[in-house]
């Protein structure tokens, strides 16, 4: 398996961390396999964005610019990807594990008759030119090693598990513009409303400090405290699934297996028991502080610093102290 295709579907006007992680994984895998890597860039204004991709050292960037691609929708995007795959002949396709990657990857895989794996945490080219994939299962309680023997194989990376590829000094790559027929009638789903949820000032995935709350907060008021603390620390607020399901925190704050994967310097887990499905979201946190009334809570097995206490008698004190200092 030699041809590795990094599939980038950026939503913003920049090639961000998620895209750079995909390119990083593709570049390293290709070099282990003594192969080539290329980029498929499907986005509105893809041509303008392609410069940012070339700067990362890609040798070939396939772009599709089409009016039907201005607004993201799976059907036209899949059509564009099929077009790229036809010329790029990839043995391995790599997507980001964000909501768009998770939506497009399995459908493209089906069309390509490709094996497929989501939530890959490590990727390696092994002898025989095979691709070895590490994938946690059971919410991270176990890990599996899978080997793809027959191409193609399609992979979604777990966010924050791969080193992003950074700019190189010399760019030698070239852009291939593909003209692909995309009928407007392909689009069978149409966005009629879009809401960006209120987030704390810092973006969760980028935040250096995260204060995160769980069912143990007992209600939405708890999150007001966490928000105040996070603001004083210059951080963001996260949540467990239980807290999101309860409606105390917006869904986009959920951290874990099916939420955000974060990598802060400091993660403060408040009233979170530490279910494996939550912990897989914070494996890249440098220091974990847990505040929990139950000394046996599993969160203390992964925490660096533990405080066995009701959060109501800890968080307000932290807030008070930090406020006093900043006014002093």
């Amino acid at each position: 398996m030699q041809n590795v295709l990094a599939i980038l579907v950026p939503r913003a006007d920049t090639v961000g961390r998620a895209e750079k992680e995909v390119m990083g994984a593709a570049q390293r895998l290709a070099s282990q396999l003594n192969g080539q890597w290329a980029v498929a860039l499907i986005a509105p204004r893809a041509c303008a964005l392609s410069r940012q991709v070339l700067v990362c050292g890609a040798s070939k960037v396939f772009v599709v610019d089409h009016p039907e691609l201005v607004e993201y929708s799976a059907d036209p995007y899949l059509k564009a990807l099929e077009g790229v795959v036809e010329v790029a002949h990839p043995h391995v396709c790599i997507f980001a594990g964000n909501s768009i990657g998770l939506e497009l990857a399995p459908r493209l895989a089906y069309r390509m008759k490709s094996a497929m794996v989501i939530d890959c945490t490590e990727l390696q080219g092994v002898s025989g030119g095979h691709v070895q994939i590490t994938k946690p299962v059971y919410g991270g309680k176990a890990e599996t090693i899978l080997v793809a023997h027959n191409p193609p194989v399609t992979i979604c990376l777990r966010p924050r598990s791969f080193e992003p590829l950074n700019a190189v000094s010399e760019t030698t790559g070239e852009v291939h513009r593909l003209t692909i027929e995309i009928e407007p009638s392909l689009r069978r789903t149409k966005v009629i409303d879009r809401i960006v949820e209120e987030s704390s000032d810092a973006k969760l995935e980028e935040a250096r400090i995260i204060v995160s709350g769980g069912r143990g907060l007992g209600g939405p008021e708890g999150f007001l405290l966490l928000k105040e603390l996070a603001e004083l620390l210059g951080g963001a607020v996260g949540a467990s699934r239980a807290a999101c399901d309860a409606g105390w925190a917006p869904m986009s704050w959920q951290i874990g297996q099916t939420g955000k994967k974060v990598a802060p310097d400091l993660y403060i887990a408040v009233g979170i028991s530490g279910a494996s499905q939550h912990l897989v979201g914070i494996t890249r946190a440098k220091t974990i502080v847990a505040i929990n009334t139950d000394p046996k809570a599993p969160i203390f097995k992964v925490a660096d610093i533990g405080v066995v206490e009701d959060y109501r008698s800890v968080i307000p004190v932290l807030i008070e102290e930090l406020k006093q200092e900043s006014s002093a």
Binding site: K301, A303, V317
Partner: peptide
């Protein structure tokens, strides 16, 4: 896809607990 191995990953962290009489002290 061949399943080559399955294992339970190890965690070997040691948590250092903050001692104290009351919440305020621990905070």
């Amino acid at each position: 896809l061949q399943l080559r191995d399955m294992y339970i990953p190890e965690v070997n962290k040691r948590c250092s607990f903050i001692e104290g009489e009351v919440g305020k002290e621990k905070a």
